[in-house]
Structure formats: structure tokens, C-alpha cells
Amino acid sequence: MLQTLIPLAVDALANAALIFFVAVGLTLVFSVLRILNVAHGSFYSIGAYVAASVGLWIVGAGLPDWLTFPALFLSAAVVAAILGPLLEKTLVSWTYGKSEAVQVLVTFALFLILEDLQRIVFGVQSVYQDTPMAMLGISEIGGIVYLNYQLLLIGFAAALLIALRIFITRSRTGRLLAAVVADREVSEALGIDTKRMFMIAFTLGVFLAALGGALATPTTGVSPGLGADTMVLAFAVAAIGGLGQVEGAAIASVIVAAAKVLAIYFAPSLDAVAPYLVMLAVLLVKPYGLFGSGSTRKI
């Protein structure tokens, strides 16, 4: 029994880690900006493409292999620093106060533009860069060989969850963000620069998605369409956890990943739909998600 359960748990947590990076960014942006950003998945794939390209350049240039590790984080930071403020100021801010339909249409248009831009910039062939994975080696758990990099990802996700909670509750910017989430009008009346907070939250969301993509590259191939797949899964996580809930996103990531893993192990034909069946079941019982609420707003 334990022989089966341990690999199941490791697979579920490794999957959940990658989903969490994207889903928490999506839920953060929603909680502050009140926008369901359909283009969020594109930031994941752009982060993946940039990280893979930088990693390939490092290896090709004969630089030390260990540089591919910081390159993953640096790539995500560069993507966020460029795209976050640029898109928030030029396009996303235009949708503030508009109807949800307009917001979805605008961000969907942005998604299509970013997808095509990726094809133009990075081409249509799959890109691989697995140096960080190869450097870390393997471990055997429950009789199954795992990549140490997969286990490291679980640690990264847990560290991110803690770091986000500390950022929101202890840092000045985090507290200001929490205030904007709780009541935008009162925050403005108190002198909080909400426009700046929106830009910070959006950029942080882009960074988290891009980081998820960058961290995924050592164990996955990057090709067109990656963003769409990830986005749909992130929506399921956000819906299950409750939009705007950081811890909810973490638990929902584990639930979604566990559903997927259980399906692959015991009912492979349900693999693709398992996360959405879980989402359906949760929303039937708790329409605002497991940790969401129709009235109180918090992050």
C-alpha cells in the first residue's frame, strides 16, 4: 500500500508545485485588480521560452552549467520587469471599471497577440534546456526513480507560499496591497496610490507565472500551446481554491494535481477531465470555492 501511496504523493506534489506558481499569480492579480486575466498563461510560456533560450545560450557559450539555475529566476524577473508595467499601463488599466465581458475579451485578445508573438520570436519548434535537471541527479522513492529537480520544485513552491504570506502580512507594500483588496475606495481616501498598487500586483503576477514557466523548462519541452494548457489548469485551481486566496491556491493546486495523478494511475481515460470534474464538484457545493467568500474580501 505504502509502495503505491508514496509515488502517488510525490507525483501529486511535484505536479502541484508547477501549477501553484501560475495559479497563485492569477489569483493575486484577480484579488487586487478584479480582473480575470486570460492572458496569464502566456506569461508562463514566455517565461519558459526565455529561460530555455538563456539556458541554451549559457551552455552554448561554454559558461559554467550552474549559471543555468540563477538564469531561471533572472529570466522570470526580466519578463516581469518588461511585460508587467508595459501591459498594465497600456492595456490592462484601460479595462478597470469596465464590464467583466470587456475585461475577458481584452485579455483574451492579449493572449492571442502574445501567442503569435512567441511563434514569431521563438519559432514553432519545441525548445529544450535540461541542464539544471541533469546537474541534480536522481533519487529512488518507493521503488521509482525521480529527478531531484522535481523534489526541489516542491521545496520552491512551499518556500514561495511562505514568502508570499510574509510579504502580504509583514511588508509595507504587502499591507498596502491587502488594504486595496479589502476596500479600494477607502484605500484611495487614505492616500494609498492604488494605481501603483495595481501595477505592482500585475507585475508580481506576471513574475510568478513566468517563474512557473522558467522552473518547468528543465523537465518539460517548450512549444506553442503551452500557455493555453497551463492557463486552463490555473483557472481550475483558482476556482477550487476561491479567487483571491493564496493558501486556497496552494491547497487547490494539490487537489487538482492529485486528481490528475490518480486518474493517470487508476483511470487513464479520465486524465484530461479529472481536474475539471473536481472543480465542478467543489463549485456545486461551494460556489465561491473552498476558501472564497461572496462578501468578505481578503488575500
Binding site: T4, P7, V145, Y146, Q150, A216, G225, D229, Y265, P268
Partner: peptide
Amino acid sequence: VAELFPKMGSSTYQTEISRLSA
């Protein structure tokens, strides 16, 4: 002993690999 049908265009097969190993 196992029949798996991952979606075409999947970027990751890590869980399928665990299942096949098991």
C-alpha cells in the same frame, strides 16, 4: 499492465513515467 493516453502536445510526462515505472 498499463494503458496511458496522454493528450497530444503534452509538455510533461513525469506522472506517466512514474506510472510506467510502477
